[in-house]
Design a protein around this nucleic acid. Structure first.
Length: 406
RNA sequence: GGGGAGAUACCGAAGCGGUCAAACGGGACGGACUGUAAAUCCGUUGGCUCUGCCUUCGGCGGUUCGAAUCCGCCUCUCCCCA
């Protein structure tokens, strides 16, 4: 009886851990160690590293973080490595350009916001947070050389990332070769049982496994989650401007999810929500718009509140489905002098709706500007200060209500 | 250390003395269609005191009436040889 129970328990653990996972090196070992952990009551040490190389986390980062939370809820121990040392090197994985080393100051800056953002998904009170400068700052040059001796150039440059750069005649910095070794060394230092990363991390994860073995430890189990594509289908990245970030306001977050391709819904449901497989099937069998709305709501709720997500949904429906004016149009003061008018294009720039007059001009000529719901196409039209107020719409998303000057 | 190739707008990539604010593709933005999906079509894509003017083609100088295009030096990258 008890044996059956723990067997069921094991299967449940494995199901949760494996959901959405791409690589699992090795599955057999996973089963063994999870079973062992359940039997002994000793939690597994699950390592995950985040490098503070930019200021904002996006939902792509949420995939592994959610996995960690799930494992945390199963009672396992999460070791979050804040890679302040590795961030200075910069992970070359998936990079087609040389990564210049980051300064310590820049890293510190990003670090501040990082942990706060991770806290939206992880229970930090149960998370062990370690900076890897803790050990890397202690290393002597000799230690570094010894570590370098653990890896050959041939093995390093057989990686796709480097092959591609070589083919494209892109530079590769020597320091970039150190990254996988550093990440691997982290595993040795925290005695990880498992390490999680994106699919682009497999090489780095496996270095940890190797190094641990060389150091007489059990090699960690390495598993990966998919990288999520951004809104335009390219890899999600803040620098592409195609990301949904943890800090997006509910309305943006909801709206951005609504604009993803139908084809990725299953993946997003699997990786970014807890909706069951069966329910996902049902949702996807129905109208795509409904399925997406639910998805948007699920995701928004995770980073904000249920109420905020509902409000976002209402606002979204009003604006885009019913094509009505949004509720919360910001009110601004008439920017020009009280007397006389302003050219429309200048007005848009003054109100901050466009970055430059030229941009405003283009937008106007392209038919993207409405005043009190009327399309205006003449950028030079003189606009007089309104008697009451004037509703300006620039593009699909930007609304502003200008108040009469007093 | 020697030899060769290259650096162009957000990205890729043409241009190789004037007609270049710079072809083309991608991306982005706007419009039509729609479910802020996909596909498709159209337009825009340096700035401004906007039918003209100003600043752009790695940096600094030079030649020329005139340079992204020619010359010199510098910086960076790649390749080959040692």
């Amino acid at each position: 009886m008890e044996a059956n129970q723990s067997q069921a328990h094991l299967q449940e653990h494995l199901r949760i851990i494996r959901r959405g996972v791409v690589d699992m090196i090795e599955n057999r070992e996973l089963e063994e160690r999870v079973a062992e952990s359940i039997k002994t009551g000793k939690p597994l040490r699950v390592k995950f590293g985040m490098d503070p190389t930019s200021a904002d986390l996006h939902v792509g980062h949420a995939v592994p973080l959610r996995k960690l939370r799930a494992m945390q809820q199963l009672g396992h121990h999460i070791v979050l490595i804040v890679g302040d040392a590795t961030a200075m090197v910069g992970d070359p994985s998936g990079r087609n350009k040389l990564r210049p080393p980051l300064s310590r100051a820049a890293v510190e800056e990003n670090l501040k916001t990082y942990v706060d953002q991770a806290a939206k998904l992880l229970d930090l009170s149960k998370t062990e947070i370690r900076r890897n400068t803790e050990w890397f700052d202690q290393m002597s040059f000799e230690d570094v050389l010894k570590l370098c001796g653990r890896m050959t150039v041939a093995r390093m440059i057989e990686r796709d990332t480097f092959q591609k750069r070589i083919a494209d005649n892109e530079p590769i910095g020597i320091h970039e070769f150190l990254y996988p070794l550093m990440q691997g060394w982290d595993s040795v230092m925290v005695r990880a049982d498992l390490e999680l990363g994106g699919t682009d991390q497999l090489f780095n994860l496996l270095r940890g496994r190797d190094l641990q073995r060389e150091e007489g430890q059990r090699g960690q189990i390495c598993f990966t989650t998919p990288l999520i594509n951004g809104l335009d289908g390219r890899k999600m990245s803040k620098s592409y401007g195609n990301a949904i970030t943890f800090n997006d306001v509910p309305e943006d977050m909801y709206g951005k999810v609504m604009s993803i391709e139908d084809g990725v819904m299953r993946e997003w449901y699997t990786l970014l929500t807890d909706v069951s497989e069966r329910e996902i099937d049902e949702l996807l069998a129905g109208h795509p718009r409904e399925a997406k709305a639910r998805l948007a709501q699920e995701i928004t709720t995770q980073f904000h509140t249920r109420e905020a997500a509902l409000k976002a949904r209402e606002a979204f429906d009003r604006r885009f489905r019913d094509k009505e004016i949004p509720e919360d149009v910001p009110e601004v003061a008439w920017p020009a002098g009280a007397s006389g008018g302003v050219q429309l294009m200048a007005l848009l720039k003054d109100l901050g709706l466009c970055a430059s007059t030229s941009e405003a001009k283009r937008l106007i000529e392209g038919g993207g500007v409405r005043l009190d719901n009327e399309v205006h196409k003449d950028p030079r039209a003189m606009i007089q200060a309104p008697q009451q107020s004037l509703l300006i719409q620039a593009g699909k998303r930007k609304f502003v209500r200008v108040q009469a000057p007093s």
